[in-house]
Simulated scan of single mutants.
Amino acid sequence: MQTAPRTTADATAGELAGVLVVGQLFTDVVFGDLPGAPALGHEVWTSSFGAGPGGIANFALASARLGVRTALAAAVGEDAFSSMTRASLAAEGVDLTHLVTVPGWSLPVTASLGYDDDRALVTGGTPAPLGSDELLPDGPPAAAVALVHLEEARTRWIGRAASQGTRVFADVGWDPAERWDQTLLDQLDECHAFLPNHLEAMAYTGRDSAREAARALAERVPLSVVTSGSAGVVAVDASTGEEVERPPLRVRAVDATGAGDVFGAALAVAGSQPAWSLLQRIDFACLVAGVTVSRPGGASGAPRLDELADWLGAHPEAAEPGRYHFVLDALHDQGDDGTTPFS
């Protein structure tokens, strides 16, 4: 195992990160807008196709495109998919200083098949042979926010990040064994927010609705947010008792791959706007995720910050009138020196 050498493509290396992303990388190959599940012996074509970094990179792509300095800690191999994924992230300006190269290991590849407003996934390969504490042996770099998929065992770096003022936004992956081990939730005592989807949230809490699951999780973490795809999102602020339920954008979902991660990154980034209410932060995340699912390629279709105003102008039917005036105001007020609303 060796630390990946720093290159000139690591455009933001050495700068204080606004967002630190830690976890498992994949290469995603995404087939969207399918008429249904592929049948054995048949071939299906779709023009809704994309390929790019996946897994924890979904967070990094979304936050970097929103104009936030983003650093990523993950394992890569020496294979062609690792090289392509690294190059794609570097082109987005993501700081790759904390990538670790693992000789003999290849980056897993996930094929995503999108139909019926959802997606099915098939992954080839093996998980990274080192945990996130091994990616950050000297501890996490200073960052305003960290985004992470929780591992089975508690990691040391999350507590260290929280102790230095980093707000940790945590998500979970699907449990293939469907054991839904409750000890995983014990790690939430070091996190600021938890962002599962409704199936995961209900499975871990034993509740029968996204709302009740979000309320149960709010007993463990300051901000509980449960996403439900085309059914919208529910959020509970444990410190105030405030609950927010919001619908998604009214868009045709071409590809839902990575949409939850894009939503989570946008929500975490929106926290740097102190004037925005919880409802506005949730709405902003719904906007960014909604634009993403209307495009092919999964998280690679996440919008850039300077696209949002034009997109809203071109799609007035996507949201009720006035829902996004606060976003347009923030974009209008960004500085002439190139700073963004989230700088």
Rank of each mutant, 00 (worst) to 15 (best):
N58I: 01
A64H: 00
G52T: 02
A60Y: 03
R207C: 10
A266E: 00
A201I: 08
Q334A: 14
S224M: 07
V251S: 00
T183E: 12
D283W: 06
D336R: 15
G206Q: 07
A289L: 04
D10H: 13
E190P: 03
D337R: 14
A37T: 12
P247F: 05
V251E: 04
P38Y: 02
A330D: 07
G298Q: 01
F326M: 09
A161D: 01
A75S: 13
P303L: 01
A309T: 10
S209C: 10
T70M: 06
A73L: 08
D138E: 15
P5V: 11
P248E: 10
L89R: 04
G260R: 04
A51P: 05
G258D: 02
G14A: 09
L40R: 13
L331H: 06
L195S: 04
A9E: 12
W311P: 04
A259E: 05
D333T: 11
R220F: 08
G260A: 01
A75G: 14
L188R: 02
M84D: 15
A128N: 10
V29F: 00
S83E: 15
G54I: 02
V76G: 11
P103E: 09
G23F: 05
A11K: 14
W180R: 11
A64W: 00
L223Y: 02
G50F: 03
R207V: 01
R65A: 07
S106V: 07
P129Y: 08
T123H: 06
L40D: 10
G229P: 01
H198C: 13
S48N: 09
I282Y: 01
V269D: 01
L217N: 07
H42V: 14
R69D: 13
G313W: 08
V122T: 10
P303A: 02
R179D: 11
A268E: 02
S209A: 11
A146I: 04
D329E: 14
A91G: 13
L184V: 15
L136Y: 08
E151L: 09
P176H: 05
D171E: 09
A314H: 10
V269Y: 03
G55E: 01
A60Q: 05
G206D: 10
V233L: 12
D28A: 04
D336A: 15
T46W: 00
D310R: 14
L195C: 11
G206A: 05
D79G: 07
Y115D: 09
P321Q: 09
P222G: 03
V288Y: 00
R246Y: 04
G125Y: 03
R86F: 05
A285E: 07
T123M: 05
L136N: 05
A210D: 12
V145T: 13
S83G: 15
R252N: 10
G338W: 09
D116C: 09
G114Q: 04
G159P: 02
T8F: 14
A210P: 07
T340C: 09
G93D: 04
F49Y: 14
F49H: 12
L34A: 00
A73M: 09
P129A: 10
P196Y: 00
L66V: 01
D189R: 15
T101D: 13
R220L: 15
L223D: 09
Q280I: 08
D95C: 11
L147P: 05
L223G: 02
A319Y: 01
G124A: 15
G260P: 02
